[in-house]
Amino acid sequence: MTPDVITVTHGVVGYDGRPVLRDVSLNVTTGEVVAVLGANGSGKSTLIRAILGLVPLSAGQVTLFGRPIRQFRQWHRVGYVPQRLGAGSGVPATVAEVVAAGRLSRRGILRPPGRVDRAAVAEALRAVGLADRAKDPVTTLSGGQQQRTLIARALAGRPEVLILDEPTAGVDAVSQEAFADALREFTDSGGTVLLVAHELGPLRPLISRAIVVHQGLVVHDGAVPEPAGHHAAPDHDHVHPHGPEEPAGLWSAQ
């Protein structure tokens, strides 16, 4: 049996007393590419944040590479891609500078960047197709290119597992393809992926398993549900990506 990379056992998360994840259990083993699907407000982003230790569990347990999250220290094995680049403050930063932050998990904070780090940054930029933009300020990039910058940042640390929060939401077709290529390259070399999405698009052929979250519970864990018509969502109305919005207030804090 292949070793577990991520496990969640009866995970419960609540914000201000309101339960968001009610009782979630899942596992991701080495080499799998798992998609977590669900509507807005289903708790899928919270699930990702709980796995990364960014929100505390009120019950249950998360392990990464076999270690409980509180004791996990090998963060260089994990590459995290958030939903978007922070709002930014006006201080310019080049694409290469943002991507170089991905090397800190390997290098630590005291050692200055060396040749290995620069090579890893260049390689990550090539993988997402942004090598020619390395010296440009990130703010001059399109939304899709900024998203690819964040993926390059995660790849630069040479992680074993990539955890991505809505990597293709609102991203143009060119960037989606470039992103799918980068992900394929990563999984071909043995990488494990857990990603949250509500539409898979060009990623679909890469996904080995899908987990559908609805109202804080796992309602499906297995083959990727077949899309009905142009709806790239499982045959549940409640995960319909174009469905009526649930109150967004809960998520606006993120």
Binding site: L52, G53, L54, R73, Q74, W75, H76, V78, Y80, P82, L85, G86, A93, E97, V98, A100, A101, G102, R103, L104, S105, R107, I109, L110, P112, P113, R153, G157
Partner: peptide
């Protein structure tokens, strides 16, 4: 100057810095 990469990381994206295992609070 010496801690520029780490300080840049926590000021640019604090959550990412946390997931990178940086001592965010100490920094």
């Amino acid at each position: 100057i010496g801690l520029r990469p780490a300080l840049f990381a926590i000021c640019h994206d604090e959550e990412y810095a946390r997931v990178s295992g940086l001592p965010v609070r100490a920094l």
